[in-house]
Amino acid sequence: MVSKKVIVNNKTGLHARPASSLVSFVKKFKGCTVTIINGDKKANAASIINVLTLGAKKGAELEVIVEGENEAIALDEIVKFIENIEE
C-alpha cells in the first residue's frame, strides 16, 4: 500500500467533468484499489457516486491511497492526473 498527498488546483474541484474523467482514468489501473480521502470523507476512486460526494473543492488537500499491482507507478500517475486537471 502506498499513499501520497495532493492539492486540488483546478477551478471546479473534483466535480462534474473532472470527477468523471478522474474515475475513467483510475479504472485503467485494473489491478489496483484506489481510495481518496478528503478530511473525514473517504471515497472509492472508481465510483463516480463516491468521488462526487467527497466535495473536494479547489484548494482541498487529498490523500490518495493505492493498493495492488504496480501500486507505486499507479499512485504517481493518479497524483499527476489530479495536479494537471484543467477547468
Partner: peptide, 14 residues
C-alpha cells in the same frame, strides 16, 4: 454517457 458511469458504478453495485 453520464448514465453509463452510474450504471457501471462500484458503489451502487456494492
Amino acid at each position: 454517457a453520464a448514465h453509463l458511469d452510474v450504471a457501471e458504478d462500484a458503489v451502487l453495485a456494492d
